[in-house]
Structures are given as structure tokens and as C-alpha cells.
Simulated assay, not measured.
Amino acid sequence: MDAFVMLQELLEQEQFELIFPERSISGQLDIRLVYLMNDAVESFLVFHNARMTGEYRPDYEGEISASMSFEDMEYILVVHQGDSVVTIFFEDLLTDVHLYDYGEIGHFWMKDYEYLRQLEYRLAIMRDKYDYLGEEYCTPEERKLAMLVDFPPLNYCCYPAVPEQYSNCKRKEKILLF
């Protein structure tokens, strides 16, 4: 997936969590923007050779608006966090993706549905990887398994620990399994 499309998607979702700063091997400053974080993936958009002006508010929770332009051989991203404005000037937008083995995890449980919950959890993080990063980051098996998230008996548990806006649950009513 194109990094600029990914940035647009984040901004439309009003998500803007920066990680500061890293100097690349050449000494240039790279600022990271969190794209997707779960137990299977850590994914960032990287503003390469960047500089920033204004005030970034890491604890801000509210509406954001953004605009981007390209002038004098650099991109300019202006983000409004309420009455605060941060501007990032950068040469390129890259992706940085780290994939992990999620086969040994599954720490969200529901009493009496532990095995179903573990299966649902594994499928859901595969689906996140597929939806946000694209099929090229998934094995052929993961591509098939990720589609099972929409199978009603498997989304019975529906991540009760996750706030509703982040939930992958498609159904509000409970399904009787027995």
C-alpha cells in the first residue's frame, strides 16, 4: 500500500501519534507516525529527513484536521490539534513494518470460551495485518484465515476489552453456541 494513502487513512480516522526522533545512519532526522500496532505487527509511517515546527500535543484527544502540500522539493504536512498546530517538513514518506510470531500469544480471555477466544484473537490480528498493510505482508494461509473474522460464531467474543470504536465485532447480539 502507498505510504501517502496510509497517511490519508490515518488522518481521516483522526489518528496522529508521533514517535520522536530517530537519526538515520546518514544523520538525517526521521519522525515516526504510528500506523498499526498489535501483537503481530508494529507499523510506522516515517517522515524521512524531517523537521518540525509548532506544538505537537501527544496527549491530545479530539478532532484533528490536516493538509499537505509539496513546495521547494519537500512535503509539508500541517496538522491542527484543536487550537494547536504542528507542521512537519519532510523529503519522503516511507513505511517501516515489523512482523512478529503471534502463535504464542492470546491474552484476552472470556471464562468458558478460552479456546474460541484464542482462535478469534489470532484471526483478528491476521485480519488487521491484511486490512491495514495489504496481502503482500500475509502468507497465503493467513490471507485465507483472516477472512474467518466475519464468520459469526468466531466473532461471538468480540473483544470485550477493546473500546467499541476499535472493535471488530460485526454483531451486537450474542450467538448461542450450544
Rank of each mutant, 00 (worst) to 15 (best):
Q165P: 11
L33A: 04
M37A: 06
G27N: 08
Y137K: 03
L94E: 15
R127K: 15
A66E: 11
K170C: 06
N168T: 02
V46I: 11
Y156W: 07
Y75T: 03
T95L: 15
Y75A: 06
M6G: 01
V97Y: 10
I76T: 10
Y56R: 00
D83M: 01
L93K: 04
T95Q: 15
F108K: 12
L93P: 06
D96F: 14
L119E: 09
G62A: 03
Q13A: 14
I105N: 15
K174A: 09
R122D: 11
H98P: 07
E14A: 14
Y137C: 08
P152C: 04
L123D: 04
F44K: 02
W109A: 12
V34P: 02
E142V: 05
E12G: 13
A161H: 11
L11R: 05
I105G: 15
K174C: 08
R127W: 14
Y130Q: 13
E63S: 05
Q165Y: 09
D128P: 10
E55C: 00
T87Q: 03
Q81M: 11
A3I: 01
E14K: 14
G134Q: 05
G106W: 15
D39K: 04
K144L: 10
E91F: 08
P153F: 03
C169Y: 06
Y113F: 14
S43M: 07
Y100S: 13
Y130C: 11
L145R: 07
M126Y: 13
F20R: 11
L119D: 04
Y166Q: 05
I31T: 14
I125P: 08
P58E: 00
P21A: 12
V79I: 02
E63N: 09
Y56E: 02
E141N: 01
D131E: 12
L99W: 12
L93M: 08
E61R: 06
L36W: 00
I64L: 14
V34L: 08
K144N: 02
Q13R: 14
E55L: 05
E173A: 09
T95H: 14
Q81S: 04
A161M: 08
M52E: 06
N168P: 09
K111V: 13
M52P: 08
Y113I: 05
E141W: 02
M68W: 07
R51G: 07
Y56K: 00
L177E: 01
K144C: 00
F108C: 14
I64M: 14
V85H: 01
Y159M: 11
M110D: 10
L36S: 09
Q118I: 08
R23M: 11
D2N: 07
E71M: 13
S69G: 15
A3Q: 06
F178C: 01
P163W: 12
L176I: 04
L93T: 03
C169H: 06
A124W: 10
T87W: 01
F90L: 02
A124T: 13
Y132E: 10
V78T: 11
G82I: 00
S167E: 04
Y100N: 12
Q15R: 15
P160I: 07
D39L: 04
D101V: 09
V34N: 04
E9I: 03
K172G: 03
E63D: 07
R117M: 00
K170Q: 10
T95R: 15
M73T: 08
Q15I: 12
F178G: 03
Y35K: 04
K129T: 15
K170L: 13
Y159F: 12
L77I: 00
D92Y: 10
K144H: 05
I31C: 10
Q28M: 09
K170E: 11
G103M: 12
L7I: 06
W109F: 13
Y166D: 01
I76V: 09
